[in-house]
């Protein structure tokens, strides 16, 4: 048997429990192959349990284990790093819990916080850095750890309560779809819920709309005084959060 054929058979055993492939690896290999299959599954289970701790708290250990088993069946790992394996798990949860949007949203928060934790290092601007900027030309550049997803439930409140070991609130649907913002400030991964208008402003700014153009959009939506005030408030919030890294 060639090395390539051996490795394909080994993969078939690990992923699909393929007994025929296992027999190709040797009549006496059974006990050893079971050790490797156990190691394979245990590593993936541990990875997902560590990455989705709050999601696990919310749905319960048994239901979470069932979801993990379904995910391992559905998505064999492909990357060299186990850090990549959690990325498809929210999609599996969305399939398993189609009527429970908060489950997928909790999983997205768990995942995004983990990714932000090891994202690229940057230096964020402070309020002092904003003096002397030509605001007619300035384009805001955001930290590369910034991530954004739609939010339809009070998942952020549930996540925070679980993290603080408090009784979580009941699920509530938001009056209108908002968004979750996740990023890293210093060494600490952060998140907060935002409303639609901040979401739209962020998406526009990340699409390289200049700050002056962003103000124009806000003025159209909110009127001259209120629009400018809201744009200024958002800029202040973003700088305070450590989201802005450049303005050129």
């Amino acid at each position: 048997m060639s090395l390539l054929a051996l490795q394909r058979d080994f993969r078939a055993w690990l992923v699909h429990d393929d007994e025929v492939a296992a027999r190709h690896l040797g009549e006496a290999a059974g006990p050893g192959l079971r050790v490797y299959q156990n190691n394979y599954r245990a590593a993936l289970i541990a990875c997902l349990e560590e990455s989705f701790a709050r999601t696990r708290d919310w749905i319960g250990g048994e239901a979470f284990h069932d979801a993990v088993v379904a995910h391992i069946e559905r998505v064999p790992p492909s990357s060299w790093t186990l850090d990549a394996y959690p990325r498809d798990f929210p999609a599996t949860l969305a399939m398993l819990y189609p009527g429970d949007a908060e489950v997928t949203e909790l999983a997205w928060i768990d995942l995004a916080l983990g990714e932000a934790f090891v994202g690229p290092d940057v230096t964020a601007l402070t309020m002092e850095d904003l003096s002397g900027i030509d605001w007619d030309e300035a384009i805001l550049h955001f930290t590369p750890t910034l991530d954004l997803a739609d939010l339809t439930t009070n998942a952020t409140a549930i996540w925070s309560a679980l993290a603080d070991d408090e009784v979580p609130p009941s699920v509530e649907m938001l009056p209108e779809t908002g968004a979750i913002l996740v990023w890293r400030q210093g060494i600490s991964a952060q998140f907060r819920a935002i409303d639609q208008y901040e979401r739209q402003a962020l998406l526009s700014a990340r699409a390289c709309l200049s700050f002056a153009e962003l103000c124009d959009v806000m003025v159209i939506a909110w009127g001259e005084a209120d629009g400018i005030a809201r744009a200024g408030a958002l800029l202040g919030q973003w700088v305070t959060d450590g989201l802005i890294i450049a303005t050129h």
């Binding site: 993969r11 992923v15 590593a43 993936l44 060299w80 394996y85």
Partner: peptide
């Protein structure tokens, strides 16, 4: 690793 699959384990060679 083989053909896009990564076991994340140290598997034996012949």
């Amino acid at each position: 690793r083989i053909e896009g699959f990564n076991s994340h384990d140290l598997l034996p060679l012949p």
